[in-house]
C-alpha cells in the first residue's frame, strides 16, 4: 500500500493536479486523515450546519409560540440557505436544479420547488439526447431524470457524499455508489461488472462508506473496497499465487473454485488514480444479475444447460 506522498483525503489526488477533481468537502472543515475513524463514528460530523451569516437564528414567523431551533445545530434550512451544488452535511448533497440531472432511484431525500422525475426509459423517447448520454441498458431502469427548478437533497444510506468535477476526463465508479450526475456527462457501462464510466466535462455525486482514499498504481485493490478509478486502464484480475497452486488442479477439472474473498484482487497498472472506500460491505446490485445474464448469450445451449445445473447445485448448497 503506497499512498502518494502528501495526499490526505480531500487533498490533491496526485502531483499533477488531476482534472477530475478531489471531493469537495464543502462542509467547511478539513476532513480527517486516513488513520481516523470515518466521520460520524463516535464523533459529530464536523461543521455540520455551520450557520450562514444571518441565518443562525431560529426562524420565527409561523404561528404559535416562537419555535426554538430543532436541533443542536441551531439552524434551520430553507431554499435560500441551502447551498448551491454543495454538501449540506457530510451525508447530504444539495443539487441546485435548473434544467435536467440524472439521479439514481431512491437517492432523493427531499426537494423544494417544481421538480419532475421521469424514468430514463420514458424520458429518452421524448428527449433524444437522453439516450445518447445514458448508454447503459443494464442500469437504465435504476435511473431517473430530474427536470425543473428547485433544490433537491440527495443522500445514500447515510454514506459520505462527495461531488467530483470532471474536466474533459473519465472516471469509472461502482454503479451502486453513483448517486447523480449532470447531463453534460456521458455514462457508459464499464467492462468490469458493476462499474460505470463517466466521460466528459461536468459534475457527479458519489457516495462512499467512510472517506475516499486516493491511491496511485501500481496497486492491487480488494474488489469490495474499490470505489473507482480514473485515467488508468481497466484493471485485470489478480489471483493470489498460493491460491492458484492449490486450485489449479480443481480448475482443470472444471470446478469454479471456492472463494474466501481475499484471494482475488483487481490489479491496476499505468498512470492514474484509484479511489477506495474504507468499507467492504456491498449492497446487492440488481444490475449485476442483468449483466451476467446478458453475458450468457455467449454460451451454446448445452453450455447454458450445464451452467444452469451448476447454479442450481450451488443454490441448493447454500440453503
Amino acid at each position: 500500500m503506497t499512498y502518494p506522498p502528501g495526499n490526505p483525503y480531500g487533498g490533491q489526488p496526485g502531483p499533477g493536479g488531476n482534472p477530475y477533481g478531489q471531493p469537495q468537502p464543502g462542509y467547511g472543515q478539513p476532513p480527517p486523515g486516513y488513520g481516523q475513524p470515518p466521520p460520524g463514528y463516535g464523533q459529530p460530523p464536523p461543521g455540520y450546519g455551520q450557520p450562514p451569516p444571518g441565518h443562525g437564528q431560529p426562524q420565527p414567523g409561523y404561528g404559535g409560540p416562537p419555535q426554538p431551533a430543532a436541533g443542536p445545530t441551531g439552524t434551520t434550512l430553507n431554499p435560500q440557505t441551502l447551498p448551491d451544488d454543495d454538501n449540506v452535511n457530510p451525508y447530504v448533497f444539495c443539487v441546485s436544479l435548473s434544467g435536467d440531472w440524472f439521479m439514481s432511484k431512491g437517492a432523493m431525500l427531499a426537494y423544494y420547488g417544481n421538480v419532475r422525475f421521469e424514468a430514463v426509459t420514458e424520458y429518452s423517447s421524448v428527449q433524444g439526447w437522453v439516450a445518447a448520454r445514458f448508454s447503459s441498458p443494464v442500469y437504465v431502469q435504476d435511473w431517473v431524470v430530474a427536470t425543473g427548478h428547485g433544490k433537491v437533497l440527495i443522500g445514500d444510506r447515510g454514506f459520505d457524499l462527495n461531488a467530483y468535477d470532471l474536466d474533459d476526463g473519465n472516471l469509472t465508479i461502482k454503479a451502486n455508489n453513483l448517486c447523480a450526475f449532470s447531463p453534460q456527462l456521458e455514462l457508459k457501462q464499464s467492462i468490469v461488472p458493476g462499474f460505470v464510466t463517466l466521460i466528459g466535462t461536468g459534475k457527479f455525486i458519489a457516495s462512499s462508506n467512510g472517506p475516499v482514499i486516493f491511491v496511485e498504481p501500481p496497486f492491487r485493490a480488494d474488489p469490495e473496497a474499490l470505489l473507482g478509478w480514473a485515467d488508468c486502464p481497466s484493471p485485470s484480475v489478480h489471483h493470489d499465487a498460493q491460491w492458484m497452486t492449490q486450485n489449479i488442479r480443481a480448475m482443470v477439472s472444471g470446478a469454479l473454485g471456492r472463494a474466501s474473498g481475499e484471494e482475488r484482487q483487481y490489479d491496476f497498472t499505468g498512470t492514474g488514480t484509484i479511489l477506495l472506500q474504507s468499507s467492504e460491505v456491498a449492497r446487492e446490485d440488481p444490475a449485476v444479475l442483468r449483466l451476467v445474464e446478458s453475458q450468457t448469450q455467449l454460451l451454446t445451449p448445452s453450455q447454458a444447460g450445464s451452467l444452469g445445473q451448476r447454479l442450481v447445485a450451488r443454490a441448493q448448497q447454500q440453503h
Binding site: M108, A110, Y111
Partner: peptide
C-alpha cells in the same frame, strides 16, 4: 445520519421521501 431541519413556508412547499421523514413541528 444527522437530522436536517427544513423550513416550510407558503410558496415554499417541501416534498419528502417517506423513508427519510423523521418528524415535523409547526402548522
Amino acid at each position: 445520519g444527522p437530522v436536517m431541519a427544513l423550513e416550510v413556508a407558503p410558496g415554499q412547499d417541501l416534498v419528502v421521501d417517506p423513508d427519510a421523514y423523521v418528524g415535523s413541528r409547526g402548522q
